[in-house]
Amino acid sequence: MASGVKPRVKVPKTAAAGDAITIKSLISHKMESGQRKDKEGNLIPRSIINRFTVEFNGKSVLDMAMEPAISTNPYVQFEALVPEAGDFVFTWYDDDGSVYDTTKSIAIG
């Protein structure tokens, strides 16, 4: 388990029904690429987040596969449709099997 993993997501609190909103997501993670070497010259094993998914009320918005070339603290910005009030569920899948998630509610208004 990577330490200090903390998801942060920016979603507007309200939107008009059918609106497109911009979502910014970031998770603090070192994204060890498996290319770097430590002081003794040994390869540091790969440890990254390999998948990121966003769902709204159970419907998919984005499903992203990540490779080691994604920077430290993976940041993703994208747009989503809001047909009704509900919850965005953000899920990150770690190489070591850990799953991190966070939920953001949005109201119509």
């Binding site: 497109a20 909103i21 690429s33 966003v54 769902e55 709204f56 419907k59 998919s60 918005v61 984005l62 499903d63 992203m64 596969a65 990540m66 490779e67 080691p68 070339a69 994604i70 920077s71 993976p74 940041y75 993703v76 910005q77 994208f78 747009e79 989503a80 449709l81 047909p83």
Partner: peptide
């Protein structure tokens, strides 16, 4: 390989931005 974005039915636009290593 860097990333693959799969857009679902609720994606407002088929666009995304991120930060990568080169």
């Amino acid at each position: 390989g860097v990333a693959q974005f799969n857009f679902g039915p609720l994606a407002a636009s088929q666009s995304a931005s991120t930060r990568i290593r080169l």
